[in-house]
Design a protein around this nucleic acid. Structure first.
Lengths: 250, 250
DNA sequence: AAGTGGTCTAGACCACCGA
DNA sequence: CGGTGGTCTAGACCACTTT
């Protein structure tokens, strides 16, 4: 984006249908750079003044773009220090994507134990959820997660193999989203969760150490990248006798 | 807030600890007026220019306050028309507070049938949830809600009697939040929901037409007013065989 | 045409941070 | 102290809606 941009924007203004404000174009340009890893997670972006000069817009316009990105948790702004690319550290995941809270109000991030790991052709459900082609392959992970040693949930995770080459041979960390970001350049920007109450199957009940048929909270989660493409499909079954899923609506 | 305000704000700027930006003070002033029903739900607020002149600040500051309130769903802004006080019509409730969606992706607002209505001293749970004094009284409503004639959920609702005098003698509409707003001047601005999977009790199972012990989704919802005081406590038990609770996270 | 909110700019000053 | 983001102002122009 150069000085020519500003006038290009003028013509876009005149367009009958597609009108995109300047700050939105700036936002999209910056998101593009985040996707392209121009700046690493945790690194500071150039200052508002520098970006404004480079992109040929006013500081106020850059500010509005950055404010929008901060509202979407893509960057973090710190007064007096700068604007930083959001990181996927445990704390962020815990508060942004992990909604399970102990009934005492304390949030605990559960430890994980991998129960199984496999690869293969995506089945119909996986293709549907992850929007994959007919012959695409997936990596599957099954984990048991515990809090204070007590089983809390079992997870079945499906990943497009194309996005995560070699993941199956790696050590699987507790914080998967950090791994996706660090090793594969994939940023989880949003999730869509469908919740149901179901009866635990014999297999899941055994893993969780409860009787088959025990009511468990099923969380069907699809994770999307910055570009809004499906990145991970995760089916979790949670024991909710000592914890709950917290949802705050405004 | 008059011209004197602007200088008062200057001194607040100098305060070591309590620093409140001008736009936030404007926002709080306007929220106060919403609470006091200076403008009815659905009515237009004065234009930005008029508010700016009246409050002795610039139009840009009023704009920032109104933008913040729009982000909190307190007002609705419409280009070329004006800024309006948010209404509690069915559509808004459906998309803002009602997160149950059919598995086919279609949202249906369930019809209601009142199963019971009573009044009395608040029990320990009700006092705790609604932050009531020891001898406070509550109104209790029990409803069965159905979609296409099929039972979908049972609700147990508790309301502080002090906030809703005479409600117990009224016709109970399907959209309770609209009633709270219209007849009692109480606006539900946000909710906090705790979700669990539980086994249906014999009583609830009978109401829902399922076998006792069937897994149901329990939604423990506390509704807060604009001033963030508890207004309603609602315990819902939902059948999730054909629907789910949708949660989108960014 | 008039009035509304939406965008964009430019400049001033303030609060916060680290060197 | 200098640099960062945060607030506030003022004015111009644009897009949308109603008259």
């Amino acid at each position: 984006m150069t000085a020519a941009r500003a006038s290009a924007q003028q013509t876009e203004h005149s367009d009958a249908l597609g009108f995109r404000p300047l700050y939105r174009q700036v936002r999209d340009t910056l998101i593009r750079r985040l996707v392209d890893r121009v700046w690493a997670p945790g690194a500071p972006l150039p200052s508002e003044m520098q970006l404004a000069a480079e992109l040929g817009v006013s500081q106020g316009t850059v500010r509005k773009a950055l404010d929008a990105m901060a509202a979407e948790n893509m960057v973090v702004r710190r007064q007096g220090r700068g604007t930083f690319v959001a990181k996927h550290d445990e704390e962020r995941i815990m508060f942004q994507f992990f909604k399970l809270v102990g009934d005492d109000g304390v949030r605990s991030f559960p430890a994980s134990r991998v129960l199984g790991l496999s690869q293969g052709r995506a089945n119909a459900g996986e293709r549907e959820a992850l929007k994959l082609a007919k012959d695409a392959r997936v990596i599957r992970i099954r984990r048991l997660r515990s809090i204070d040693g007590a089983p809390a949930l079992v997870e079945a995770i499906a990943l497009p193999e194309a996005l995560f080459p070699g993941l199956a041979t790696m050590e699987i960390p507790n914080n998967l989203y950090g791994l996706y970001a660090m090793r594969f350049g994939v940023t989880v920007a949003s999730t869509r969760e469908k919740l149901k109450a179901v009866a635990a199957s014999p297999k899941d009940a055994e893993a969780l150490g409860v009787a088959p048929g025990t009511p468990v909270l099923e969380i069907d989660r699809l994770a999307l990248s910055l570009e809004r493409t499906p990145v991970e499909w995760r089916l979790s079954l949670c024991l909710t006798d000592r914890m709950h899923y917290l949802s705050e609506l405004r």
